[in-house]
Every structure is written in structure tokens, then in C-alpha cells.
Simulated scan of single mutants.
Amino acid sequence: MTDLTGRTVLIAGATSRSGLVAAQTLVDAGANVIAVGHDPVKLEQLAARLAADAAWMTEACDLTDERAVDGLAERLHAQDVRVDGVLHLVGGWRGGGGLAGQSDADYRVLERSLTALRFVTRAFEGDLRASSAARLAMVSSTAVARPLAGGANYAAVKAASEAWMRAVAQGFAKAARDAAADLAAASTVFRVKTLDGLEQALADRFVALWDEDAAEVNGTVIELAAAA
């Protein structure tokens, strides 16, 4: 089993079912977990479901607010906490109605996941680059490769998010080259058709990224599918 003892992993959007499973799986692997969400009540509910002696902490933060995200990073750094991993689970779905039904209001709601990804990765990029083994991952959708008119907003936001993750991957690789060092940080995209039923598979695959060479998974897209 992967040993993440001494590693600190931040879960962005941790109050979902997939966030709970990921938090518990990371704790079981020995990681220190920072569960971040915007709803303090849901964070309390999450905390109540994790083992009492688990190495975790919760942080309430609006991840679409740049100043709030920067403040979160500053609070953690003031406590001498540096992250070795980030799992981005901020998402949601709005769609339907063909192309004519792709409202700007729906797009703005969906865009919040990309906004959060941008703010979180910028705030913690220094931590990830400084780590001896850092892993960053987000959950995308198979809709990026096979978009439908009724999900055009959703697919567009996910495609933009994947492009951002590839840019982060290039930044990791360039920093390692410039320092004449081995690549230690990796940015990876997980694509799913739906997360329903794949929560544990996602958590396990994210943890397993630490067993792989950073150069092998940096900038890659990994599709997760339900077992046949």
C-alpha cells in the first residue's frame, strides 16, 4: 500500500461524497489531509465522519475568491504547513436544451470550478514545486473528447480546466529543467463520465500517483471507468 506518511494533501471541494472517500483514503495511506469547502456546516459533517484520531483539518474558504484562497495559503504557511498534493473536486453540472439552452447564467456557475482551480494552483504552486514528491489532480469529464450541444458550457469549462492543468504541468517540467533537477511534481487529469460509483476508484488512483515517476504522469489524462 502507498505510504504517504509525512505528506500533506489539500482537497479542494471536500464536502462531496468523493471528497469524503478521498479524505479517508488519504488518511489511511498516512497523509495529513486539509479538507477545504465553502460551507462550514458541511465541513463539520465531514469531520464527524472521519476517524477521531485521523490526521486531518478542515478549512472553510470560498475558493472562487482570490483573496480568500491567498489568505488560506498564508494561514497554513504561518502554521508551517506546506502541501505536497492537491485534489481538485470543485465542480457541478448545468446543461440541456441544445445549444440554445446554454445560458450565460449556467456558464458562469460552471466557470466557478475553473476559477477555483486557477486560484488554488497559483496559491500553492510554490509548495508543490518545493515538495520532494508533489501530485496535483483534477476531475474532468469524457465530455471534453465527446461534447454534446446540450452540454457545451460544461464541456468548454472542463476543456479550459484541462488546458490549465497542462500549463501547470509544463511549468513543473520547466522549473525542474532550469534547476537541472529530476522532476518531482506532476499535474494529472482524471476523466470520468460520472463520478457516481467511482469515488473509491478515484481516491485509490490519486493516491497511487505517488507510486509512479512524476515524469510518467505529469501532463497526462487518465480515464476512469466503472468495472464491467
Rank of each mutant, 00 (worst) to 15 (best):
S132H: 13
M165A: 06
L50Y: 09
A73P: 02
L183H: 07
G98R: 13
T25F: 00
A14L: 12
G219V: 02
G126L: 04
V221M: 08
R67F: 03
A176R: 04
E125M: 12
D127R: 08
A133N: 14
G30A: 02
S187H: 08
E74K: 14
T115D: 12
D182M: 05
D182E: 13
A68P: 04
L117R: 05
K158D: 06
M1V: 13
D28L: 13
I222W: 04
R177A: 13
G98S: 09
S18P: 07
S140A: 12
F190P: 15
A149S: 14
S141P: 08
A226D: 02
A201F: 01
L43M: 14
A52V: 05
A35M: 02
M165R: 02
G19T: 09
K174W: 01
S103Q: 10
V168R: 14
M138Y: 03
D204I: 11
A208Q: 10
G98E: 08
S140H: 03
T25Y: 00
V189I: 14
A23R: 10
V168F: 00
V221E: 11
G71D: 09
A73E: 08
A52I: 02
G30L: 05
G95W: 06
P40C: 10
L183F: 01
L114G: 00
D62K: 07
A152E: 04
R108A: 15
T2K: 04
R94S: 12
E212A: 02
L4Y: 12
V120R: 00
R7Y: 02
A137Q: 06
L198N: 06
A54K: 09
R122W: 04
